[in-house]
């Protein structure tokens, strides 16, 4: 075993240089877009007609639903988006009564929130999920390997999977109608169909202002909170409501983007591969010393390797 310091640094240097070049490659979409598109869902306007589900199904070419979209009994149970439906509307009875003592329903549309700093995009091993300038958290099936780490990472439990496709399963989630909104004047299918404009489409900054105006102008109608303004670092889809979000099945998430800790640790330890290089040098030093000592002591054993 011959180990010279020079030989060692040659190899370490080569590895390091390779790593440094890699680092300068496009590092995904780390910085959130300045003014992406978004949608503001006004839960006080939603009438639970499920037209958004129907439009979503149509524009995304999803398989026909088991129960027709006109069937209101579907609302009797709480549903989640899945690989066959990117958005679903659930009905809650938070406890308000109307004039005739009937419980007043609140309808909640669920879909991908299109986070400003998406955990799924941070997690994705191949960068198949990326945050686009227009706000979309976009899925590129041609890169996907199907590890489902995005599903582990998503704080909103949104991405679904085609578990019954043996060879080419896809991660399925709301696309924010990427193709449609990329065109001038294009709208997401759901926002276009919504009969009451419960979904307002626009630039995120504009929508925040709209939401704040609505809350300010109708303090009796809304609670003073925009879900999605700060949650997990902000989301492109935001909600305003008459009742606290906790009563409507909204998930309590921190304001910090959830992948932050993992990313920080990862980047601190491995930017420019400094820690592996240092460790390699350290181990090389130990190995060199131990073998030198050994060679001096006894020759036969040292030559064996």
């Amino acid at each position: 075993m011959k180990l010279t310091r020079r030989g060692f640094f040659k190899i370490a240097g080569a590895t390091g240089a390779a790593a440094a070049t890699n680092r300068s490659a496009p590092a995904g979409a780390s910085a959130p877009p300045d003014d992406p598109y978004g949608c503001l869902v006004d839960l006080t306007r939603c009438i639970g007609c499920r037209k958004c589900e129907e439009a979503c199904n149509r524009v995304n070419g999803l398989p026909p639903p088991e129960e027709p979209f006109e069937d209101p009994t579907v609302l009797n149970r709480l549903r989640r988006p899945d690989e066959k439906a990117f958005t679903v509307v659930n009905r809650y009875f938070p406890g308000q009564l109307d004039a005739s003592n009937q419980l007043v329903p609140t309808f909640v549309k669920i879909q991908c929130m299109h986070c400003q700093e998406p955990a799924c995009a941070s997690a994705c091993i191949v960068g198949a999920l990326t945050k686009k300038e227009n706000g979309t958290v976009h899925y590129d099936v041609t890169k996907c390997i199907g590890c489902r780490y995005c599903m582990v990472a998503c704080p909103f439990e949104i991405p679904a999977y085609e578990y019954h496709d043996p060879i080419t399963p896809r991660v399925m989630k709301c696309t924010f109608c990427f193709e449609r909104i990329s065109k001038e004047g294009g709208l997401p299918g759901c926002a276009e169909i919504c009969p009451t404009e419960a979904i307002t489409f626009g630039r995120r900054q504009t929508l925040l202002k709209v939401a704040k105006d609505r809350i300010r102008d109708n303090p009796a109608r809304y609670i003073d909170r925009i879900y999605g303004e700060k949650e997990v670092g902000g989301t492109s889809w935001m909600y305003i409501s008459a009742v606290p979000f906790e009563k409507l099945g909204f998930i309590d998430v921190p304001n910090e983007p959830t992948p932050k800790l993992a990313e920080t640790i990862q980047h601190t330890l491995f930017s420019y591969l400094w820690s592996p290089i240092v460790l390699y040098g350290l181990l090389g030093g130990i190995m060199w010393t131990s073998h030198k000592n050994r060679a001096e002591d006894e020759d036969e054993e040292g030559d064996r390797r």
């Binding site: 490659a25 590092a27 995904g28 191949v126 996907c144 390997i145 199907g146």
Partner: peptide
């Protein structure tokens, strides 16, 4: 476990340095 076993080589081409799994 991965859905697209045949695509397991793709991380060699498509890199995401934010991803712990990539490393």
């Amino acid at each position: 476990d991965i859905g697209r076993s045949w695509a397991i080589w793709k991380p060699m081409i498509f890199w995401n340095f934010d991803s712990v799994l990539f490393e």
